[in-house]
């Protein structure tokens, strides 16, 4: 099997691509506004290149410690997915509905099986946010279909 490349190689390449993409955007900018972005992006690409080189070196020397790092572990990625779903539902379902669903989902995911705890947490958070943000600070939380 081929040796696994160090993740720094990919990061370096990603940084360079990102810099190039952002650099192209400076074309539309007026002269004064473009100078600093160009400088910053060139530096970023340069660092990307250095990290790429460092990654190649690491790959050669085969650093076992780093090889074991799994960037996309199942659990954090699942939590992230739940968060993304939650955040994208806010405008649709309203803040309180989606927050309640989110708390239930995440607590179940964290292997909390006691229904009483889940319900109490959920009501506590909702009430706290309602009283502090909505009543006290007049923050307009998004309303959705239900609330």
């Amino acid at each position: 099997m081929k040796k696994k490349l160090s993740h720094d190689v990919y990061i370096g390449i990603l940084m360079i691509i990102f810099s190039v993409f952002m650099y192209l955007k400076t074309g539309d900018m007026p002269k004064g506004a473009a100078t600093f972005p160009k400088l910053v992006l060139t530096t970023f690409a340069f660092f990307g290149f250095l990290i790429f080189l460092g990654g190649m070196k690491k790959t050669k020397n085969f650093n076992t410690k780093e090889q074991n790092i799994n960037l996309f572990q199942k659990n954090p990625m699942s939590v992230l997915l739940i968060v993304v779903i939650y955040v994208s539902m806010i405008n649709l379902l309203g803040f309180f509905t989606s927050t309640s669903l989110f708390i239930i989902a995440l607590m179940l995911f964290f292997r909390e099986r006691r229904i009483k705890t889940i319900v109490l947490t959920l009501l506590g958070v909702d009430l706290f946010i309602y009283l502090l943000f909505v009543v006290q600070l007049n923050v307009f939380l998004p309303r959705g279909l239900l609330f």
Partner: peptide, 19 residues
Amino acid sequence: SKAILTPIIIVLCVVGSYA
């Protein structure tokens, strides 16, 4: 426990960013 704390922190992050 993390099962309670993590959801609360994330919700507060969301409402804080929004506010």
